[in-house]
Design a protein around this nucleic acid. Sequence first.
DNA 1: GCCCGCGTTGCAAGCGCTTACATTTCTTGC
DNA 2: GCAAGAAATGTAAGCGCTTGCAACGCGGGC
Lengths: 342, 342
Amino acid sequence: MPRDRRTRPTRTTPPVPTLADVARIARVSTATISRALNKPQAVSVATRLRVQQAIDASGYVPNLLAGGLASSRSRLVAALVPAIATSMFNQTIESMALALASAGYLVVLGLTGYEEHGAAGTVDALLARRPDALILTRSPTEPQIRRRLRASGVTIIETWDLPPRPLDVAIGFSHERAGRALADFVLERGYRRPLLITHGLARGRTRMQGFMARFRERGLRAPFCDLCEALPFAIDGRARLGMFLDAGRRADVVVCSSDSLAQEVMMEALARGLSVPGDLGVIGFGANEPVLATALPLTTVRIDGAEIGRRAAQVLLMRSQGREPPQRRIDVGFEILARSSA
Amino acid sequence: MPRDRRTRPTRTTPPVPTLADVARIARVSTATISRALNKPQAVSVATRLRVQQAIDASGYVPNLLAGGLASSRSRLVAALVPAIATSMFNQTIESMALALASAGYLVVLGLTGYEEHGAAGTVDALLARRPDALILTRSPTEPQIRRRLRASGVTIIETWDLPPRPLDVAIGFSHERAGRALADFVLERGYRRPLLITHGLARGRTRMQGFMARFRERGLRAPFCDLCEALPFAIDGRARLGMFLDAGRRADVVVCSSDSLAQEVMMEALARGLSVPGDLGVIGFGANEPVLATALPLTTVRIDGAEIGRRAAQVLLMRSQGREPPQRRIDVGFEILARSSA
DNA sequence: GCCCGCGTTGCAAGCGCTTACATTTCTTGC
DNA sequence: GCAAGAAATGTAAGCGCTTGCAACGCGGGC
């Protein structure tokens, strides 16, 4: 093997100090340094002080690759998300990362894209890092992946949904119920001819089905559905509403699968001289901070993405202490924010 | 030490297979497996096949903590960002992560928040992971951190700016020049009384200074500046413009530090019966995908965040092959997108 | 005075890989 | 048919930590 890899760091940097170097300076064994760092209460105050000085003097930064290997606790949390440039889940990841930072955990990102089967390779790449937990923003459907995840033995947290049989722990809400709640909401407000515009991903579909089911249960005629094959953020709301109206169809409220979509729809309505909500109600979905922050008067379904992240952090911290979370399915609910667009 | 940590994975999961297990199955040495995985061309085709079968049979997933420790290449890239819930930099991180994924690299996130000195702890947490590179979205000012970064020997890439003396490699553009370019742009369009609204972070300030400098050079009266102490995404654009106008001041164009800010300003202008750009021009900054995607007719400065990410990936891939990037300061430029709001 | 127990510290065996170097097994050329 | 070099594989020494266990020192109880 290489004689002295410590000189490797490019361009003649002085070698990076190791535990052994610190031990030499502090005149104690490496075990003591390790303990001073990881369970300070096991080390006498005097020694602790000496160790700290040695660390400062040497500029030592622990090598957590080595630490993780030895302890089989990487203090890494893997997050599997479709994207981060434009994503509902960022808030969740961020609040989780923040909640975990003080416990020494870091988040590694696995980007899957929005294709149905984009996750396989990414899952393996993440598992290779031996994370202490894996956060999913979509439950994998492929049995192979599910098996692999289970076999890995790491804590798996599925978020933004509540599958009937979670792989491990799930934190989210029922999209079916959200759909139903929306149906009740629009009916209560007197709307009778809703237009649903949604992307074709599973959750949008599920909400739509909940919505339809409610209408059916009440014996009302089925709402018109515009199920777009485009990705969530790539739907052209103006065009969709335009096409609908141009086809001579009519609606009294538009229920959209995202807030940005709703904004576009609203814009198109206004451009066509329709008043909102007078002539046409508009409802969004997602209400994350940016939309909440603006004074935009959009009626929408608010999901507390940050809360999902905090709960995930809690669960994982419990597991790391060997305790079991009280429940396997944690419902964070949703809330219909009635503002002035519907 | 623990006898058999392989049984650890919670709740009586079967032990996770290791290289040695695969070697046993394939009836070769562990070295051969390692080579088959990391430099396939060094292994005969027949063996490679046998190894692959053994891997499939056992469900082996390499342990990259161990691999990284042994090779001192973690294949981890650390990204230091203020936030991801609402951030200009997500596009950069995402495109970099995507470009690196095929080379087996993963991104670990370090969130610093927007405070001036939030980075210190995060930097150490990231360095402890022994990343092969560190991507910064803001150059650290603290000499201590700069020293630590340099001493670490990892590739450091500063992005979204072009400091005169980069720590290592910088990929970005000149905010000073962007400010000047904006000044020239508004003057060319005949505006003479601009209002600048910006956050108080360094780059916004720099752009503002560039803008002012250009006005001064041309002998024109200084523009009015509204330097807000709020964070970039927390400025209430409607209120800012409102206060300005209510104070009896006048402007013919508003230059904003972000697109979302510009949108709010535009909304307030319209709400006050001012036509845009007839009575008041509005200019944004940042033009990332979401804003580009909408048909929103906002004149703005477009920065190609994705390109910055791709370039970063390139640099780091070169370094990992021992080659030096051709330049230390890579200018990706900016572009003033003249649409219809100014 | 001795023994026990506790609080500290040290010893040293791994954790699961990579890789320099040694060894074995092919190819070739003559 | 054989030597020499190339190609493929094996051997084993780490990489920098963690941690079970042993050793030590000290004070108190009897």
